[in-house]
């Protein structure tokens, strides 16, 4: 991949080492990667290949052991806890494998949450939440609790929560792992549409072929190293 200055994300010689008892395990090994705005990119590889670790570092949930990760002009390894919280709050949306919806909140309140943290005014908040729920086709379930939703609906709420603030980057960790095939395709189509409409950069950590089929760039990781980085024509 050619690296330009317009890149949203750039990692250089990124290493991540975890202690494992008396030994250590190298989750990322010399990973250099650049991601431009609007990409629909997947980190692909078997379990333990370092996909989630790389995603966490890009999302400023974790920091590298060595090397550099530049996200939206922020050096992740240099950020304080407060600064990384702010980066996530302002610019990054997360979608988790297990949805991670807040159980005591309604669908509306779950989607509203990132806007509350941003201090968005009430009227604007309502508009943005309803718009996000319409994007994912759940405007009619605004008052439901997560426990009243199916897996597919829950993941769509999680997507709405991730994109409600219109972040530059959405990071999705195995977003279809708990969904059946039909729901997986629906979810992916929703994210493709949002990627086109909002120009949001999506990065997936996945080994699900259904997700991979939607990607326009596939970065394959193996044993913490980038094995292959390929542009592809997605089957949309």
């Amino acid at each position: 991949m050619e690296i330009s200055n317009s890149m949203l994300i750039r990692t250089e010689r990124l290493d991540k080492i975890y202690p494992l008892g008396p030994a250590t395990i190298k989750a990322l090994d010399n990973v250099s990667l650049s991601v431009a705005k609007g990409e629909f990119l997947g980190l692909v590889g078997p379990s333990g290949s370092g996909k989630t670790t790389l995603l966490n570092i890009i999302g400023s949930l974790d920091s590298p052991s060595s090397g550099s990760a530049l996200v939206l002009g922020n050096r992740i390894e240099l950020l304080s806890h407060k600064e990384s919280s702010r980066l996530r709050n302002d610019h990054i949306g997360f979608i988790f494998q297990t949805f991670n919806l807040l159980p005591v909140y309604t669908v509306y309140e779950n989607v509203e949450f990132p806007l509350l943290l941003l201090g968005t005014p009430s009227a604007q908040r309502t508009k943005m939440v309803m718009q996000a729920l319409e994007w994912v086709g759940l405007a009619g379930r605004a008052k439901s609790k997560p426990s009243q939703l199916s897996g597919g609906q829950s993941q769509r709420v999680a997507i709405a929560r991730a994109i409600v603030k219109k972040p530059e980057i959405v990071l999705a960790d195995e977003p279809t792992a708990n969904l059946d095939a039909a729901n997986s395709h629906n979810i992916m189509k929703t994210m493709v549409d949002l990627n086109k409409e909002l120009k949001t950069t999506f990065i997936f950590a996945t080994h699900d072929e259904k997700v991979i089929s939607y990607l326009d760039r596939k970065v394959t990781l193996f044993d913490g190293q980038i094995e292959k980085d390929e542009l592809r024509e997605p089957a949309r």
Partner: peptide
Amino acid sequence: GTLMALGMTRT
């Protein structure tokens, strides 16, 4: 963890 990921600070 979710709250932190959504941008909530430790404080």
